[in-house]
Write a protein that binds this DNA or RNA. Structure first.
Length: 500
RNA sequence: GGGCCAGUAGCUCAGUGGCAGAGCAGGGGACUUUUAAUCCUCGUGUCGUAGGUUCGAUCCCUACCUGGCUCACCA
């Protein structure tokens, strides 16, 4: 199922216990109409947890990801060229890739990064594309049933949701020659040819073969039909679908009364918010992608974070202030004695891409064990570095400046002399504690208060008045660079003096 | 109005049918070789309100109050 070591949560065990005997088909349905974000991932993870719990009970389980690729484009997603409005009503699988990365379609463009993340999480899930299912005839039987029971479906929609369907309404949306799935009116069902006769927007009469994917069932009907066509026994739903009169309400009755199929088990999950930003919304462009999160944490941490204690509870994701604590907790729970994440953040920003120096710095800090596993260390440093660059609050960021910052101009004569002196005394191969001693003793020797002296160091390197423990930090930087920077302040003073 | 979720220490939240917890913040002390530090130390809170079940309820049930989100295709 998934190569994850995290425990099966209690809520998932309870759900699995209530589902009874299998074989089971656990499905999660997602529309690739825009960015597929961490909230969508929550749905997949709920399904995954239940599937794992079922397997743990000895049940046979198929775990499916149903991508709604045949759905019509309803709204052009943020970031997509305006001219895509001409494709409104067309299947996502038949609208061109809005990017330049060579995907097969609009659907493919948004699906690809999400699938990549699922693979990175080693999730064993079968990805189905709905347009292919329609083309392969998987929905032929249920579509015919739906067409034959049009009146009953219409009545259910009216009774449950209060929606009065227009005259000529059909559960099937045929695709016109123009590619448009909307605005067509079905006139007649031709069951022996698996077809419908319909009139398109321009009033032309056409036919569509529903065994070849030339159209699709309307959303609410399709949900119930899908359960039967795929033999679904469990599906999670976001709370937006489960309110009274909502899509699950109508699908439940359609499944029982029209398709003669028992309603699958269900788990209603609450939404995720990104702290300080709000609920995710593809259409507002507020999206946190799984791949963004995988840049700063390993797959199991992502599972733990997105699922939360119980997905039936709303969740605020905090990738800023609270993140180091989360990472430390996660790794402790996994039985690893962690190097504090904040320390990794300092190391990552100080030594850049050099794993050997990172190992040294960790050894000096007393984390010998971590230094012994270079591959793992490299991974963790990459998480730390990405976090520092993308999410960390200002006080965690240690951008070593390319150039001498303007703030250096505010240093007084004592501080400049101190830096120049240190520059002359720095050894070729500095070692953290030795540098620390040097920095301190030099300050005392020149009669500069330590606080002032250290502030000078942070100012010329970081543009800030404070920073990480100076000795190891300075020792971690290239020696020539430090000497140049420290002595450069003195030169500036002289230049300034000559000019004025 | 319907649905879901929440209400526990200043803040963020754990928690269990059997004497109320953690982290952070805050107070006090140590260190004084600097930090976003480090070490020691300090917690009686109507567990939202009112009932009920129980030997016993923060926990289970009911009602209510308050807040958040959601309700015809954005999970």
């Amino acid at each position: 199922m998934s190569n994850t070591s995290i425990a099966i949560p209690v809520w998932a065990e309870n759900v699995a216990a209530g589902l009874g005997g299998g074989p089971h088909v656990v499905v999660t349905g997602i529309s690739p109409s825009g960015n597929i974000h961490a909230g969508n991932l929550r749905e997949v993870l709920v399904a995954e947890a239940v599937a794992r719990a079922l397997r743990a009970r000895g049940e046979e389980v198929r775990f499916l990801f149903h991508a709604d690729t045949i759905d019509p484009l309803r709204k052009v997603s943020p970031g997509v060229p305006e001219e895509y409005t001409r494709y409104l009503g067309h299947s996502l699988s038949r609208v061109p890739d809005p990017g330049d990365d060579g995907h097969v379609s609009y659907a493919g463009h948004f699906l690809a990064p999400f699938e990549r993340s699922l693979r990175e999480m080693e999730m064993e899930i079968e990805v189905l594309r709905s347009h292919e299912l329609y083309e392969r005839g998987v929905y032929t039987g249920v579509t015919r049933e739906a067409l034959e029971n049009t009146d009953q479906l219409r009545r259910i929609l009216l009774e449950v949701s209060g929606r009065e369907m227009p005259e000529g309404w059909s559960p099937f949306q045929p695709r016109a020659a123009s590619g448009d799935l909307t605005g067509n009116r079905v006139v007649e069902h031709l069951p022996e040819q698996n077809s419908v006769l319909f009139v398109d927007r321009e009033g032309r009469e056409e036919t569509a073969d529903y065994s070849k994917g030339e159209g699709k069932l309307g959303w609410r009907v399709e949900l119930a039909a899908r359960w039967k066509a795929l033999g679904v026994t469990f599906e999670p739903f976001g709370k937006d679908h489960t309110s009274r009169g909502g899509s699950t309400d109508t699908a439940d009755r359609m499944a029982r009364e029209v398709f003669g199929y028992p309603v699958p088990g269900r788990y209603e999950y609450e939404w995720i918010q990104l702290r300080g930003v709000g609920a995710m919304s593809s259409s507002r462009g507020v999206t946190l992608l799984p791949e963004d999160m995988l840049r700063i944490m390993p797959p199991d941490a992502l599972r733990q974070m997105v699922l939360g204690r119980d997905p039936a509870r709303a969740l605020d994701i905090d990738l800023a202030e609270g993140f180091p604590q989360f990472m430390d907790d996660h790794r402790s729970a996994a039985g690893e004695p962690p190097v504090p994440f904040t320390h990794l953040v300092t190391v990552a920003q100080t030594v850049g891409e050099e794993p050997e120096r990172a190992g040294e710095m960790l050894r000096r800090g007393g984390y010998e064990a971590a230094a012994e596993e270079p591959e793992k260390l490299a991974r963790e440093l990459s998480y730390a570095r990405n976090w520092a660059g993308e999410w960390a609050p200002e006080q965690f960021r240690l951008g070593v400046l390319e150039e001498l910052p303007e703030e250096a101009g505010e240093l007084d004569e004592d501080q400049r002399r101190y830096l120049a002196t240190v520059a002359r005394r720095l050894p070729e191969e500095p070692e953290g504690e030795a540098v620390q001693d040097l920095l301190y003793s030099t300050a005392r020797e020149l009669g500069v208060k330590p606080k002032k002296a250290f502030a000078a160091i942070y100012t010329v390197l970081l543009g800030k008045k404070s920073g990480p423990k100076a000795g190891p930090f300075v020792a971690g930087l290239p020696g020539g660079f430090v000497r140049e920077r420290f002595s450069g302040v003195m030169r500036d003073t002289e230049d300034a003096g000559e000019e004025s």
